[in-house]
Design a binder for these strands. Structure first.
Length: 916
DNA sequence: TTTGGCACTTAGTATATGAGTT
DNA sequence: AACTCATATACTAAGTGCCAAA
């Protein structure tokens, strides 16, 4: 839709001034609400930005409650995930080394052909054109009335109370030091000093109105930074680098004879020589003793090079290069791993008869080499459909269906309790696709005359049966599944065994698009091997196709990309579905680290960027003015860039695609944003902006209809091109990472006080929540939320009753009288007053904890903390904070997060996100 | 310059898992 | 052992951004 138009030449800078740091208050509150048609119909989610209102700061988030996993934790034993954790079922993972299975390669070769893929195209046709009109709803249905945010929220948030008492039950405090053992290379992180001053993210400042952070005291953090010894090296000694080198080719490891070792990270390295004894994958970390301690840095580099060299190398580094420089080049150069790769490279070659497309595709990625050797077993397919024979009723009479027809009918029947089931769009799309299977002349002519109840009930019974299975049966089943999947779960990348993220091909089903997706309900057909392209190292055995008689579409050997397999998305054939390594892999870790370094690097340029856009608020050139305002919004509000979308997608927007109707000017200088963002999550926020911004936005709206683009001269590529001129490698999304991470860093350092672990965790959660609000990370209120709160309330009341009894008995004991009998009529034995006091204290603590938990639960019912933790918060901030404050890292990161962030574990305690 | 292909990150929700209870 | 509940993980949709071709 809206395309843009020209750009204007040049700009001049006006001279605006305004300091960026002004106190704008951006809060997210919505004041409005009025319209809201927006909320998705869906029930619950009141997507309204919850946020709002609450000023984060003040809300006492209460304790996280014990969430913590193990309390005991204390020891953080190696906190590292690394090792172990992988849950590999331990079984001997190794054994299956991938290769084994692989057998012949013969088959493959590109023949793809045979499969004819049928795409059904959809005909959905719904234009959707509708756009949202400004308020409300233009568009039809989409937005439903939401409960309105604002008020609602207010109402809802009960919380504020102070409950915070915290106590920690477990005392887990572990010495931090002990906690993290691994170290990392210092690489990039290099020195950072902590200055507290720096600028805080605007967002934060501005954000909620008022709620600013209070700062000042950085709690006494440690100032003296210790030299961080990188000591790490020590560990290394062990580095056993696997000798991988040999392997590349060899990697094919014969099945058995492989030896595996674990590298530093606990990853298993495989080397042909050893026997596979058990390698317990990281699981037991134990295994390899030594390795575990190896610094991550090394890990990255890992072995490949045999040279062990290494030791210290790490330092090298790029540092900012990453950031500043365009990533590409930097990447290679510097990272140790890359170097390593390079070396090996050559060896790999080998023939590959199998290989099919040798042509290395132009690869789109960044063109950089990502790996040298890559071995895996391909993907696993969902089991074929098992017909149940239950008939649906058509106008009250049972109807016979073919297996294929039944399969699709079942997909629909099973969704009866979801909101999709009643959505016209969903039903229409489903009907179109199902009807194609039924045939025009089928008895069934109308979806509304179909009664899927029999199948739905059968489904419930099956579910129940499953639930009723004994624990052993369930366990057996699970093991069986595990056994089948094990070989597909791992890949060996440059000699290191790594978990694959999604090795299962997506099963057929009905498309569940979010929001008012025009394609919801369409049949997502079953994917066949002949639609799948694999990517594997040259010379590595080509995975056998798991479905007899079929073959892969193609086998590539492109080491400039990280995917292991892909196929065309059946819903949108122009897009693809990829199989990648898991989040805990080195490849992903490296890229994650680069992402944070890039964001961190922004710290050094943010002032300049703000000065620039401020100046351009008054630029003569409209495009320049739009770029300035858009950049301002992205910086202050952490909005997404906003790429153009097709008509066959849900109608959502980001900064560059905001419509005139999404923005409302409220004199004197407030702007109310109300739009559906990614995943059709509503963003409602009223903020005070710089007067010049206010004026500029008014200009951009002038003479346009509500559905026109606010930034008609802009799109993400123009915006990013501009950002790149300011800072190489800078793009719009970097601001979100920057704002999220710096907000966490600053809130943690300013608000962490002495106290027990529980109190500190409360501080962390509060900071995490603030970030989630800034990023508008929402979640649906669970269906049972209300009931859960009621139950908790009741339980608290009960406990309070008991407390009252205890107090009565204490008084009586003091007077030498026996206790009263319990409310249940039971007798209670006499105790000494101090024993009663002790009980009272325990009971009070229990009540407080429960109240705290309840408040936190209510407070966070619509806020998703996980998304920012996983994607936006530099884990080094968290790790360093945990070290400084002796909080076991396990209290903050789950097992999988520990794995994912293995690269950040050995950061120095003084690490600060801002280098300044 | 715009469009589309491609690769990869980010996101909410469904489901599995596990801790705490009863 | 069976439940409850809550979190952790699995799943896959929906973004961003780059590049080359149109």
């Amino acid at each position: 839709m809206g395309t843009e138009t020209v750009s204007k030449p040049v700009m001049d800078n006006g001279s605006g001034d305004s300091d960026d740091d002004k106190p704008l208050a951006f809060k997210r509150n919505n004041t409005v609400a009025s319209n809201s048609n927006q909320s998705k119909s869906n029930s619950q989610r009141s997507k309204a930005v919850p946020t709002t209102k609450v000023s984060p700061m003040r809300s006492p988030v209460t304790s996280p409650n014990g969430t913590t996993p193990s309390n005991k934790t204390s020891i953080v034993k190696s906190s590292m995930p690394s090792s172990s954790s992988k849950a590999s079922p331990a079984k001997s993972p190794l054994r299956n080394d991938m290769p084994s299975t692989v057998k012949d390669r013969s088959q493959l070769q590109k023949d793809q052909s045979e499969c004819k893929i049928e795409h059904e195209d959809s005909e959905d046709d719904r234009p959707l054109s509708s756009i949202l009109s400004g308020n409300k709803g233009p568009t039809s249905s989409r937005q439903v009335s939401s409960p309105q945010p604002e008020k609602k929220n207010n109402g809802d948030r009960p919380l504020d109370r102070a409950s915070r008492i915290i106590k920690d039950e477990s005392d887990d405090e572990t010495p931090i030091s002990s906690m993290f053992r691994k170290k990392i290379d210092s690489g990039m992180s290099g020195g950072n000093q902590l200055s507290n001053d720096e600028k805080k993210p605007l967002v934060q400042k501005l954000h909620q109105n008022g709620s600013t952070v209070k700062n000042e005291v950085p709690n006494g953090k440690v100032l003296g930074k210790r030299p961080l010894e990188k000591n790490s090296s020590a560990d290394q000694s062990s580095l056993k680098k696997a000798k991988i080198s040999a392997s590349p080719t060899s990697v094919k490891m014969k099945q058995d004879s492989v030896k595996k070792e674990i590298d530093d990270k606990g990853r298993v390295l495989v080397s042909p020589k050893m026997k596979a004894k058990q390698l317990s994958t990281r699981e037991d970390g134990t295994d390899d003793d030594d390795d575990d301690d190896v610094p991550i840095s090394k890990r990255f580099k890992s072995d490949s090079s045999n040279s062990n060299t290494s030791s210290a190398k790490p330092k090298a580094v790029k540092l900012n290069s990453t950031s500043s420089a365009a990533k590409p080049k930097a990447r290679n150069v510097v990272s140790p791993r890359s170097r390593a790769m390079t070396k090996n490279t050559k060896k790999v070659t080998k023939d590959s008869k199998y290989s099919t497309s040798s042509k290395s595709s132009p690869s789109s990625g960044d063109g950089q080499k990502k790996w040298t050797t890559l071995v895996h077993n391909g993907v696993i397919f969902p089991p074929p459909y098992k017909p149940h024979g239950i008939k649906i009723l058509y106008k009250g009479k049972p109807v016979d269906l073919t297996i294929e027809q039944e399969e699709v009918a079942t997909m629909f029947a099973v969704m009866r309790e979801t909101d999709y089931y009643t959505k016209p769009q969903f039903r229409e799309n489903f009907w179109n696709d199902w009807r194609r299977l039924l045939g025009k002349k089928h008895v069934i002519q109308k979806l509304d005359d179909c009664d899927f109840t029999p199948i739905y009930e059968w489904h419930l019974e099956e579910k129940e049966k499953k639930k009723q299975m004994s624990t052993e049966e369930k366990k057996a089943l699970k093991e069986e599944k595990m056994k089948q999947e094990e070989k597909y779960m791992w890949a060996v990348v440059d000699g290191v065994k790594e978990k694959i993220g999604n090795f299962r091909v997506e099963p057929p089903g009905l498309f569940r698009g979010r929001g008012e997706h025009p394609k919801m309900g369409k049949l997502k057909k079953r994917i066949r091997p002949c639609e799948i392209t694999l990517n594997i190292g040259k010379g590595a055995p080509i995975p056998e196709c798991p479905i007899a008689g079929e073959r892969w579409k193609e086998v590539k050997h492109d080491n400039t990309v990280t995917w292991l397999a892909f196929w065309a998305d059946p819903i949108n054939p122009k897009e693809f579905k990829y199989v990648f390594l898991g989040a805990g892999s080195s490849l992903k870790g490296l890229s994650d680290k680069e992402k944070y370094e890039k964001a961190r690097n922004l710290t050094d340029h943010i002032d300049n960027i703000r000065t620039t856009y401020t100046k351009n608020f008054t630029a003569k050139d409209v495009k320049m003015r739009q770029i300035a305002v858009a950049t301002y919004l992205i910086d202050k509000l952490a909005l997404r860039a906003g790429n153009e979308k097709d008509d066959d997608e849900a109608d959502t927007v980001g900064c560059c695609t905001l419509k005139v109707g999404n923005v409302e000017c409220i004199p004197p200088n407030k702007i109310k944003f109300d739009f559906l963002g990614k995943d059709s999550i509503q963003y409602v926020n009223t903020v005070e902006v710089e007067p010049l911004v206010y004026k500029a936005i008014g200009q951009f709206q002038a003479g346009k209809s509500k559905t026109d683009d606010l930034f008609d001269e802009l799109d993400t590529s123009k915006l990013n091109a501009h950002l790149k001129e300011l800072v190489p490698g800078l793009t719009a999304k970097v601001f979100r990472t920057y704002n999220a991470s710096i907000t966490l860093d600053e809130m943690l350092s300013q608000e962490t006080k002495d106290g027990d672990v529980t109190q500190k965790i409360v501080v962390y959660q509060k900071a995490n929540k603030e970030v989630a609000i800034i990023c508008n990370h929402q979640r649906t209120v669970s269906k049972t939320h209300g009931a859960q709160i009621e139950k908790l309330t009741a339980r608290i009341e009960e406990l309070k009753e008991v407390l009252k009894e205890l107090k009565t008995n204490l008084d009586r004991a003091k007077k030498g009288k026996p206790p009263l009998e319990g409310s249940d009529g039971k007798k209670i034995r006499s105790l000494e007053p101090n024993a009663w006091e002790k009980k009272i204290a325990q009971q009070s603590a229990k009540i407080e904890k429960m109240e705290r938990d309840m408040h936190t639960k209510e407070d966070l019912k619509t806020v998703a903390l996980g998304t920012s933790k996983i994607n936006y918060l530099d884990p080094r901030i968290t790790v360093a904070w945990c070290k400084r404050h002796e909080v076991p890292i396990e209290k903050i990161f789950t097992k999988s997060l520990l794995e994912k962030f293995a690269w950040a574990m050995d950061v120095e305690p003084e690490y600060r996100f801002s280098r300044r």
